[in-house]
Nucleic acid binder design. Structure first.
Length: 596
DNA sequence: GCCGTTTTCGGCCCGACTGTTTTCAGTCG
């Protein structure tokens, strides 16, 4: 297996996974196998690069990485190789590690195939396996048959063809359609959407659905007949999994009773469940999706609250069930009171169709009036009309000031709009506070794209990076701090610049950013656009720990996406943010004192 | 190999489904 000094998390996870598989072939110690596997998944899901942690001497903060694996990784980052790993894999056919990616094939099967078919090298291994299956050679191997030969062929065909993870709204939309179909069966008593969708992860891989029914067989038969099903992966008395035509997997479970344990189990996360079960074990209890076994006798639960309560814990909101300290907090009755969608009193970041002739970036499609109308419908106390700053390449500073001045006049006219007054009534228009804000580019040298006199026309500004995104961590940090330093600037929008599935975003020296924000009363945005969700949940948690305030904005370019702010709230919740951490959870009479 | 407010030794989550088997091993979530 090829290794080098600069492996990323994905590659390291694959390496440790391969070591786990190798041990599964070579040694009896089942727990060593699990240990490597756990370290691999922990690294795969880690949010900072393991190499960076190693640089900072913080390797031991990664769960599942102890003395031994830690030393191996140290060797890897220093020399690009790990002698111990090489030794373990030396007498195994490298081809087996290629086969592990084929669905349904694990270490034992992979090894057996290599041995029996005489496939060794990594290159072309899958092709050779395919040819053997086509020539009906696999069914001759002991323990294999016609069916497993067929499964291997379909498995190979599936390789690399699985759809990528979905953005949250896309997954929700897909799930909604499936649920509508499931409910058509009269035997269905309750349907619940669980898994990562319930935990509101920023992207969703599989869709998990649980149904309460007195007639499991009928309901499962009904489920697998859904017209969008391409392939039934498995189907039994209690659960079924299917692949949709869209190449997304749906896992489906049915149960008659004790639904509380089922909701808990199927919501996950896996690591939360494992930790929970280990905690229970200390008390002599055994957890499963059916309930809690006390001295061999199963105790059932109607709801999750009773389930957690029986374990001596408070009910844990799904968004934070990621095994990052929530179990300990629930035991100590010290869970945070997470911010809610209904706490949000306004939105600072919306884009209108106001034209400068040439704006710097995408404009919105709705008018100021339509945005204000939507804000009133959402029950907001205030609304920020932002828009991008005029482009510096097409305007002189004087032109920029003139344009912003014109924009200001238009915004001041809104409250007199006959159309709005007609639609909503004078009273509601008077109640909402309309803020003239602006999303100002931070130019690559850290200066702002709007001259001071332009900024003075605003209620306040916020800044964002839209160019030169490849700058290194130090330069980018300096650039952003320079922008934040302006007295008219209140926060940094979409702080990491990531686009889910498209680009990673730039690196920042977060300790410096947090420190600056805290000392100067600047905030960080949680941008609720589904392909941004930026800050990320993990950085939100860090910000909250550091006492930095957040704002949750929609960044809507059309009024219907103003409701997407709920996804931003989910990110805040996943980052353990409470109402007090969120600036736009403040009522206007308190907010007005902060933005001078 | 990892881990610890009942442990630095002695544990390590739990169950469903499938294929090839006559009772289970392997894989998956």
């Amino acid at each position: 297996m090829k290794t080098n000094k600069n492996m990323n998390n994905q590659e390291i996870a694959a390496l440790l996974g391969a070591i786990s598989a190798a041990y599964e072939i070579k040694e009896g110690n089942k727990f060593k196998i699990i240990a490597y596997d756990r370290a691999a998944t922990a690294i795969e899901h880690a949010t900072s690069e393991i190499k960076d942690l190693w640089d900072d001497g913080k390797l031991d903060t990664v769960p599942g990485v102890g003395v031994s694996i830690g030393q191996h990784l140290d060797e890897l980052f220093r020399t690009g190789k790990v002698k111990h790993f090489k030794k373990i894999m030396s007498d195994l056919p490298m081809a087996m590690f290629e086969f592990l990616d084929i669905p349904g094939i694990g270490p034992k099967t992979a090894f057996k195939l290599c041995e029996s078919l005489g496939i060794n090298g990594r290159i072309g291994a899958v092709k050779k396996l395919k040819r053997a299956a086509e020539k009906r050679k696999i069914r001759l191997i002991e323990g294999f048959g016609e069916q497993s030969e067929k499964d291997i062929l379909t498995g190979i065909a599936e390789l690399g063809r699985r759809e990528e993870r979905m953005l949250l709204p896309h997954a929700a939309e897909l799930a909604k359609k499936i649920i509508t179909y499931i409910k058509k069966n009269p035997e269905v008593k309750e349907v619940h959407l669980l898994g990562s969708l319930r935990r509101c992860c920023s992207t969703v891989g599989d869709i998990d659905i649980a149904v309460k029914t007195d007639n499991p067989g009928v309901v499962i038969d009904h489920f697998v007949k859904y017209s969008e099903v391409k392939k039934i992966i498995n189907k039994g008395k209690r659960k079924a999994s299917v692949m949709l035509k869209s190449r997304h997997q749906v896992d489906f479970r049915v149960q008659r009773k004790s639904f509380g344990a089922m909701l808990q189990y199927f919501t996950g996360s896996k690591h939360h469940n494992i930790h929970l079960r280990e905690e229970a074990l200390k008390k002599g209890l055994s957890l499963s999706e059916y309930g809690i076994k006390v001295k061999g006798k199963l105790k059932r639960f109607e709801n999750e609250k009773d389930f957690y309560s029986f374990l001596g814990m408070d009910w844990i909101p799904p968004e934070i069930r990621e095994n990052t300290g929530e179990i300990e907090a629930a035991q100590a009755h010290k869970l945070p009171s997470l911010v809610k969608f209904s706490d949000i009193k306004g939105d600072f970041h919306t884009h209108s169709d106001f034209r400068y002739q040439e704006s710097s970036h995408d404009e919105g499609i709705n008018s100021f009036e339509e945005i204000v109308q939507k804000a009133i419908n959402l029950g907001y106390e205030y609304i920020g009309l932002a828009d991008h700053s005029p482009s510096v390449s097409n305007h002189t500073p004087r032109q920029i000031i003139a344009l912003l001045s014109k924009r200001k006049q238009e915004i001041e006219q809104i409250k007199r709009s006959k159309k709005l007054i007609h639609l909503l009534g004078r009273e509601k228009i008077r109640e909402i506070k309309i803020l003239n804000t602006l999303e100002v580019d931070i130019l690559s040298d850290g200066s702002l794209a709007v001259p001071d006199k332009g900024l003075e026309l605003l209620d306040f500004a916020f800044i964002a990076v839209h160019s030169s995104m490849k700058q290194n961590r130090k330069t980018m940090t300096r650039r952003i701090l320079n922008g934040l330093d302006h007295p008219k600037v209140m926060f940094l929008a979409h702080p990491t610049g990531r686009k889910l599935g498209k680009r990673e975003g730039y690196e920042l020296e977060w300790e410096k950013i947090f420190d600056f924000c805290l000392r100067n009363n600047k905030w960080l945005e949680i941008n609720a656009m589904p392909d941004r969700l930026d800050l990320t949940d993990v950085l939100v948690r860090e910000a909250v720990k550091n006492g930095v305030k957040l704002v949750i904005d929609s960044d809507a370019h059309e009024v219907k996406s103003m409701s997407f702010i709920k996804y931003g709230v989910s990110v805040a919740r996943r980052g353990w943010a409470e109402k007090k951490d969120v600036i736009n959870a403040l009522p206007w009479n308190q907010l007005r004192n902060i933005i001078k």
